[in-house]
């Protein structure tokens, strides 16, 4: 095993970028594989942050809007090198994905009308529905724990699916309703 980095100085901005580039490039498979990658790279291997700081960063990532994993990275980058560290971790983490998405976009638009793409995208589209259902299933098990949370979820579904209410209005209303419904329960 490699010796942990010298901790008398926080890592340079370039090092932060490179480590998060590695995390963003090689951590396939969504949140969980990325989280374990975070822990291995940043806590165990490099000791940039302690385990508690890691847990705290994950928590902040979950409690802030946007992609949680990027947010946890911002959190860690900010602790290490303030705003420049936060920018370096974000850039590193999304770099490869963004390039890949752009390349796929170029390719997709070139052959979009080609006959071979249609059956492929038909299969992929069906798999994406399965993926969405799986996300819904997993989220439900974690979040819908009582009648009140279930009621909010069903109400949101009905308002969007049947009445075409704007989803942002539904989210804001659900947040406001949460203040009333879940206030005593939290913590």
């Amino acid at each position: 095993m490699k010796a942990p980095d010298d901790l008398s100085q926080p890592p340079s901005v370039a090092r932060i970028f490179l480590v998060f580039l590695k995390i963003g490039t090689f951590a396939f498979g969504g949140v969980y594989s990325m989280l374990s990658f975070f822990e291995r790279e940043l806590v165990e291997k490099r000791r940039w942050i302690s385990h508690d700081e890691y847990i705290e960063s994950i928590a902040i990532g979950q409690m802030t809007p946007g992609a949680p994993i990027v947010n946890s990275g911002i959190c860690i980058g900010y602790r290490l090198r303030k705003l420049r560290g936060a920018l370096a971790s974000t850039a590193g983490q999304i770099f490869t994905g963004t390039i890949t998405a752009i390349l796929l976009a170029v390719f997709y638009m070139k052959i979009k009308e080609h006959a071979i793409l249609r059956p492929i995208m038909k299969g992929i589209g069906a798999a994406v529905i399965g993926l969405l259902l799986s996300i819904i299933f997993t989220m439900s098990r974690k979040t819908l724990k009582d009648h009140k949370t279930l009621l909010v979820a069903v109400a949101a579904f009905v308002l969007l699916a049947l009445f075409k209410v704007s989803p942002i209005m539904i989210i804001l209303t659900a947040g406001a309703a949460g203040f009333i419904l879940f206030r005593n329960k939290s913590r």
Binding site: L132, I135, I136, M139, S140, T143, L144, T149, L150, V152, A153, V154, A155, A156, F157, V158, L159, L160, A161, P167, I170, I171, T173, A174, G175, A176, A177, G178, F179, L181, F182, K185, S186
Partner: peptide, 12 residues
């Protein structure tokens, strides 16, 4: 808690 519950309904 309210928002996370609603998001599930919206995703559905």
């Amino acid at each position: 808690t309210g928002i996370k519950s609603a998001v599930i309904g919206l995703l559905a």
